[in-house]
Design a protein around this nucleic acid. Structure first.
Length: 690
RNA sequence: AGGCCGGUAGCCAAGCGGCUCAAGGCAUCCGCCUUUUAAGCGGGGGAACGUCGGUUCGAAUCCGACCCGGCCUACCA
């Protein structure tokens, strides 16, 4: 039987403080009232232990719960939330307003904030903690010295209770956290005084501080004032004189040892993940890897540093930061499907931008020689560990430079920023040491195929690869088709349950046949007998790109520039002077991920229009991602754009590399996820299954 | 979109066909403890086992559908 939920009035706030009897007529009908649930619950099973609490809870529920009523799906009704709500009510009786507006902290330490934080106090005074060997306690003389040096330093600090209070009869310990560091406070029953949030004076009641302390829960915010000292075990602590309540945690904190392991909760409720990462108790027993692993908090701090470092680098090299439209009538500048939205006043559909590229190059036309934009792009495509529908891209453009200059600049920029962020040029990612200090390898697509497919062939087919085959269109066609078949079959061999010895599905036999087919073809290939044909045009270029993706992409672990992209898939890029089918373009790969994409910018308006028209033809042929024609951009080019190089760098992916995270969702604070069924706004959308 | 895996109290989880199967730990509540730190000791309470349906005398456990998530593939310059 479903319990009746207490209704929530939405149009007016709940009474600030329920008076006995005064709000009686405002209370819901009894069968809807939480007290009714108590009567039917096990709270009233009477025994010595819980009889008194049961009566108390009944009274409490009737008179106090209505004033802090939150919907069940936000604050579920269970023993822990009930205890917290009850503590809140009693705190209000003791100190008045439970949500004061401010708390003044001391300024003993140098901080950007201008006042002491937990982090600043810990880093400034931790040096007084006596040095002790593992598992030993400091000697009394050491403690005396330390405490003499700390002297009479009185601090006022604030933070969240990072642990449940450890009460020992007439004294207690608890740690406060500012999200980064934690600082222990020590509260004595006879000494601590609570501060009223209404009068800001001490609460005139015996042992008021102790009473308040006993009502605190893991996760509450408090401010304390007291002297710094070092405990018997050598830990820097605050000996609390006054304690002020600052805010209540009505929901229980994540487990102090395990944190939150469910990625769904971590990503949907990032706030809870951040709390967990700051409250998690660090144990010595965990494997060495986790010692160096960044916390969630640190991941996002590092992301912020990366963005700052990149901005600084560009600012120092004469670039101007600009902001171009995110809403646009034409979604162009990249090959991707856009999001559509609607402008009511103009009554037109607009697109969320898929790239700022065409706007930034308009600015080159307008006279900016160096511009950049660091912001979000939106692509209406799949979600994966490397793709989020909105992602952050740094794009910048440099007049009078070409693709080769841009590769150099990009390499130097990454080297500089990585050094600033990690204090080194080597980044460990999943056990691989990524070297940003060395010169990045530069390979054409064909070179990359040759380099990495040779290895593949030794493993699977048993013969080496003749690079010259990539110059013959028939060979390229064969190789691309063969690879398609091979990879289609090969995916079955990685499925669980695949047993090469028991080949029921016939996958093994087919793979063996394919290998034989490949050998035969390779052996009959004799370039000396054949004239060198022309490069075969766009079709062949695209097939080479396909072969590259199949055999080389995921093997590009170290930072590697891949050059010589087919022109047909690069409609905004200048063609190579040596080969009209090849674009002067590169992509930077790290850990098999495309991290950057740059080229010599096409600035001939007539050719640009031709390229757009070719894209339009592909669009009509069913390619939804073919680029949209932007005639105003062609007009801009007609005013004349200087020769220029441009690049886009994926900030999310760079952050992944610098924080050792395999999923893009781990470096985006609030990644997009399917709304929970209960959160769907339109109930009609929850269509029933037939 | 396809394949595989998962969903058990606030958190971490054991159990994977019948009678002690709804363990255990953290948290919460009560009692004791004036320098603890994964505090300790003693005691209490808390669970429609993702949802709906089926098989069965009997389902957390087996079957089906659905919801949500993760990983892989596809898609993604």
């Amino acid at each position: 039987m479903q319990d009746v939920e207490a209704p929530v009035r939405e149009d007016e706030p709940p009474p600030r403080r329920a008076q006995l009897g005064a709000d009686a007529q405002q209370l819901p009908p009894f069968e809807n009232h939480p007290a009714h649930r108590l009567v039917n619950s096990k709270w009233l099973i009477v025994n010595r232990q819980n009889f008194a609490p049961a009566i108390y809870h009944l009274l409490f529920t009737i008179y106090y719960l209505p004033m802090h009523r939150l919907p069940e799906e936000i604050v579920p009704d269970n023993d822990q939330t009930r205890a917290r709500a009850e503590h809140l009510a009693r705190i209000q009786e003791l100190v008045g307003n439970a949500y004061p507006n401010k708390f003044a902290r001391t300024a003993l330490t140098e901080t950007a904030e201008g006042e002491d934080t937990i982090t600043s106090v810990v880093s400034a005074f931790r040096k007084y903690e006596p040095e002790v060997k593992e598992g030993e306690k400091p000697a009394p003389e050491q403690l005396e010295t330390a405490n003499a040096e700390l002297g009479e330093l009185r601090v006022r600090v604030s933070g969240r209770l990072a642990t449940p209070p450890r009460v020992m009869g007439k004294a207690a310990f608890v740690h406060l956290s500012d999200g980064r560091e934690r600082l222990q406070i020590y509260v004595r029953r006879q000494e601590a005084v609570a501060v009223s949030n209404d009068s800001l004076r001490p609460v005139e009641e015996a042992e008021s501080g102790w009473k308040l302390f006993q009502l605190l829960d893991h996760g509450d915010f408090v401010g304390v004032e007291g002297k710094l000292f070092v405990t018997k075990t050598g830990e820097l602590s605050v000996h609390v004189e006054t304690i002020q309540f600052l805010s209540k945690a009505l929901l229980p904190m994540p487990d102090k040892l395990h944190g939150i392991s469910d990625p769904e909760i971590r990503q949907r409720q990032r706030y809870a993940d951040l709390i967990a990462s700051s409250l998690k108790v660090k144990t010595d027993e965990e494997p060495g890897d986790s010692q160096t692993e960044l916390s969630t908090r640190e991941v996002f701090e590092r992301r912020s540093k990366l963005v700052t470092a990149m901005r600084r680098h560009l600012d120092e090299h004469g670039y101007v930061e600009v902001e171009t439209p995110m809403l646009s009538a034409i979604a162009s500048g990249a090959a991707a499907r856009p999001f559509v939205t609607h402008h009511n006043a103009l009554d037109i559909d607009l697109y969320l931008r898929i790239a700022p590229e065409l706007y930034l190059k308009r600015l080159l036309v307008g006279g900016f020689e160096r511009v950049y934009e660091l912001n979000r792009n939106f692509r209406n495509e799949g979600i994966s560990t490397r793709h989020n529908p909105e992602f952050t891209m740094l794009e910048f453009y440099t007049a009078y430079k070409d693709v080769n200059w841009m590769m150099d600049f990009c390499e130097e920029m990454l080297r500089t920023t990585v050094k600033q962020i990690t204090n080194g040029t080597t980044v460990n990612f999943g056990g691989n040491d990524l070297e940003f200090g060395r010169n990045f390898e530069r390979l054409s697509m064909k070179e990359a195929i040759t380099k990495y497919w040779s290895y593949e062939l030794r493993e699977t087919v048993g013969i080496s690869f003749d690079a010259r085959r990539l110059d013959y269109p028939d060979e390229v066609r064969f190789l691309a088709d063969w690879l398609g078949d091979w990879s289609y079959l090969d995916q079955y061999t990685i499925l669980p349950g695949y047993d090469p010895g028991n080949d029921k599905s016939g996958v093994n036999i087919k793979l063996t046949e394919l290998a034989a087919q490949f050998r035969e073809r390779a052996e009959s290939f004799n370039p000396s007998n054949e004239p060198l044909p022309d490069s075969g045009g766009d079709e062949i270029a695209k097939r080479i790109a396909y072969i590259f993706e199949m055999v080389a992409e995921d093997k590009l672990t170290q930072p590697t520039f891949i050059t010589d992209f087919p022109k047909s898939i690069s409609p905004l890029s200048k063609a190579s002077p040596d080969d009209p089918t090849i674009a002067e373009r590169f992509e930077l790969y790290i850990m098999g991920m495309e991290v950057a994409n740059g080229f010599s910018e096409l600035n001939d308006p007539a050719e640009q229009l031709e390229r757009f028209e070719e894209q339009a033809r592909q669009r009509e042929g069913g390619d939804e991602e073919a680029m949209q024609t932007d005639l105003d951009y062609v007009r801009a080019l007609s005013y004349g754009m200087p020769p220029a190089a441009g690049i886009g760098i994926g900030i999310d992916r760079m952050t992944m590399l610098l924080t050792n995270r395999r999923s893009i969702r781990d470096v985006i604070l609030f990644p997009h996820m399917r709304p929970r069924a209960a959160q769907l706004e339109d109930p009609d959308e929850q269509t029933d299954t037939p």
